[in-house]
Simulated scan of single mutants.
Amino acid sequence: MVIVGSTNPAKLEPVRRVFAEVFGGLEVRGVEVPSGVRVQPIGYEETFTGAHNRAKGALRTPGASWGLGLEAGVEFNDLGAWLFNVAVVLREDGRTGVARGGSVLLPPAVGERVRAGEELGPVMDELVGQKDTKKGPGAVGILTLARVERVEFWRHTLELALPPFLRPELYPLE
């Protein structure tokens, strides 16, 4: 069974799609697992840590043979604030896959609020006058007018974490 360290539908759906296509026949469930980091992770290291913690917690769920952690983070540079995502895939045999996905530049006012400590989801909700956008289109869907949907944003990252499972001869267990 595949356990995702989240119950967010926007994270569960890409896992269901990818695992159905690539591995077939595996049940996918979400469980609430603490990330161990801030609600809005800042920087790659914190975002990776949150995803890894979620994957480890998911794998500890009774019946789990796979544990997945998906975490969105924000990092800052001279151009502004960037939203990106990280996927960590753990299997009970010790094999691990990790990927960092694409990124999108956030509007300056949004970036300033995140830098000041606010979580991106509620900031985006307020920006567009909607509720719980992080369970739907997310910032990436809102900013691209759904040309890049949140499910696809996660799907690509998840697929990029799979080579150790798809080509295990190239990724020996240590």
Rank of each mutant, 00 (worst) to 15 (best):
Pro34Thr: 04
Pro34Cys: 07
Ser35His: 08
Ser35Val: 04
Gly36Ser: 03
Gly36Met: 02
Val37Asn: 01
Arg38Ala: 08
Arg38Gly: 02
Val39Cys: 00
Val39Trp: 00
Gln40Met: 12
Ile42Asp: 12
Ile42Gly: 03
Ile42Glu: 15
Ile42Met: 13
Tyr44Gln: 12
Tyr44His: 11
Glu46Gly: 12
Glu46Met: 13
Phe48Ala: 12
Phe48Gln: 05
Thr49Cys: 09
Thr49Lys: 11
Gly50His: 08
Ala51Glu: 06
Ala51Arg: 05
Asn53Asp: 14
Lys56Pro: 01
Gly57Phe: 01
Gly57Met: 02
Ala58Glu: 06
Ala58Tyr: 08
Leu59Glu: 04
Arg60Gly: 08
Gly63Leu: 13
Ser65Leu: 09
Trp66Phe: 14
Gly67Arg: 02
Leu68Asp: 01
Gly69Gln: 09
Gly69Pro: 11
Leu70Gln: 06
Glu71Trp: 00
Val74Pro: 02
Glu75Cys: 11
Glu75Lys: 15
Asn77Lys: 10
Leu79Glu: 15
Leu79Pro: 02
Leu79Asp: 15
Gly80Asn: 07
Gly80Glu: 02
Ala81Ile: 05
Trp82Gln: 09
Trp82Asn: 11
Phe84His: 10
Asn85Thr: 12
Asn85His: 08
Asn85Val: 08
Val88Ile: 09
Val88His: 03
Val88Glu: 05
Val88Pro: 01
Val89Gln: 00
Leu90Arg: 04
Leu90Thr: 04
Leu90Lys: 06
Leu90Ser: 02
Arg91Asp: 02
Glu92His: 06
Asp93Ala: 02
Gly94Ala: 00
Gly94Ser: 00
Gly94Cys: 00
Arg95Pro: 00
Thr96Lys: 07
Thr96Glu: 09
Thr96Cys: 00
Gly97Ala: 04
Val98Ala: 00
Val98Ile: 08
Ala99His: 10
Ala99Val: 06
Arg100Ile: 12
Gly101Gln: 00
Ser103Lys: 07
Val104Pro: 01
Val104Lys: 03
Val104Asp: 03
Leu105Trp: 04
Leu105Asn: 03
Leu105Met: 05
Leu106Ala: 05
Val110Lys: 01
Gly111Met: 03
Gly111Asp: 03
Gly111Cys: 07
Gly111Ser: 09
Glu112Phe: 04
Arg113Pro: 05
Arg113Cys: 09
Arg113Ile: 15
Val114Pro: 01
Arg115Phe: 14
Arg115Ile: 14
Ala116His: 01
Ala116Asp: 10
Ala116Tyr: 05
Glu118Thr: 10
Glu119Ile: 13
Leu120Tyr: 14
Leu120Trp: 14
Gly121Leu: 05
Gly121Phe: 13
Gly121Gln: 10
Val123Pro: 03
Val123Asp: 04
Met124Tyr: 09
Met124Asp: 03
Asp125Thr: 13
Glu126His: 14
Val128Pro: 10
Val128Ala: 13
Gly129Tyr: 14
Lys131Ala: 14
Thr133Gln: 13
Lys135Arg: 15
Pro137Asp: 15
Pro137Tyr: 07
Ala139Lys: 05
Ala139Pro: 10
Val140Tyr: 02
Gly141Ala: 11
Gly141Glu: 03
Leu143Gly: 02
Leu143Ala: 09
Leu145Val: 09
Leu145Cys: 11
